[in-house]
């Protein structure tokens, strides 16, 4: 694993059409597009504060429609933190994260030190197939954090990324560039009970 470089790389995985790009775009640009475009691979950069200095948060939005083991392996080995996205409207999309998690496990070895967030997106949808407790149970099993989000209504999106950064114990990172860590203290308030952190 690459040691403390100036980049902090977050990789977003998930099945096709679960809203990976929507989440990332909502976070990076604050917008939501109702169009329907599969992703090849996109990377976004944002400056965040890190250990009283600044560094670049690099978010890689991957494709969900086809898996190229080689490309996936490369993203995993280069990544510092991972967001595994499923859609609460599709049980299948949660199932599909399993091989990806296994892959992360295989490449990174001990995942407990790696920030991983399991995310149930589309929480605004009414046709739910995956209950919140099912997602929590899966996260428990994987020993990772869990959150439900909605890129459409902007629910828990910024929280997701901040929480992910908080999970990394090696660095002290914050989305706010003023350098003050606002993470831990107000966490409970921010998450409004929608998140459980192991």
């Amino acid at each position: 694993m690459p040691e403390q470089s100036n980049d902090y790389r977050v990789v977003v995985f998930g099945a096709g059409g679960v809203g990976k790009s929507s989440l990332v775009l909502r976070f990076v640009k604050g917008t939501f597009r109702d169009t329907y475009i599969p992703t090849v691979e996109d990377t976004y950069r944002q400056v965040i504060s890190c250990d009283k200095s600044v560094c670049t948060l690099q978010i890689t939005d991957t494709t969900g429609s086809h898996q190229f083991p080689a490309m996936q392996r490369l993203s995993i080995s280069k990544g510092h933190a991972f967001i595994l996205v499923y859609s609460i409207t599709s049980k299948q999309s949660l199932e599909e994260l399993k091989p990806i998690y296994q892959q992360v496990l295989a490449i990174k070895g001990n995942v407990e030190a790696i920030p991983i967030m399991l995310v149930g997106n589309k929480s605004d949808e009414t046709q739910r197939e995956v209950e919140t407790k099912d997602g929590e149970a899966q996260a428990n099993q994987w020993k990772c954090a869990f959150m439900e989000t909605s890129a459409k209504t902007n629910h828990n999106v910024t929280e997701l990324f901040q929480e992910l950064l908080n999970l990394d114990k090696k660095r002290n990172m914050s989305l706010n560039i003023d350098g003050k860590r606002s993470g831990k203290q107000s966490r409970a308030e921010r998450l409004k009970g929608k998140c459980s952190v192991m």
Partner: peptide, 11 residues
């Protein structure tokens, strides 16, 4: 069928 060929199926 929204997203035919994009969506995945049961592995």
């Amino acid at each position: 069928i929204e997203g035919i060929f994009r969506r995945s199926a049961n592995v």
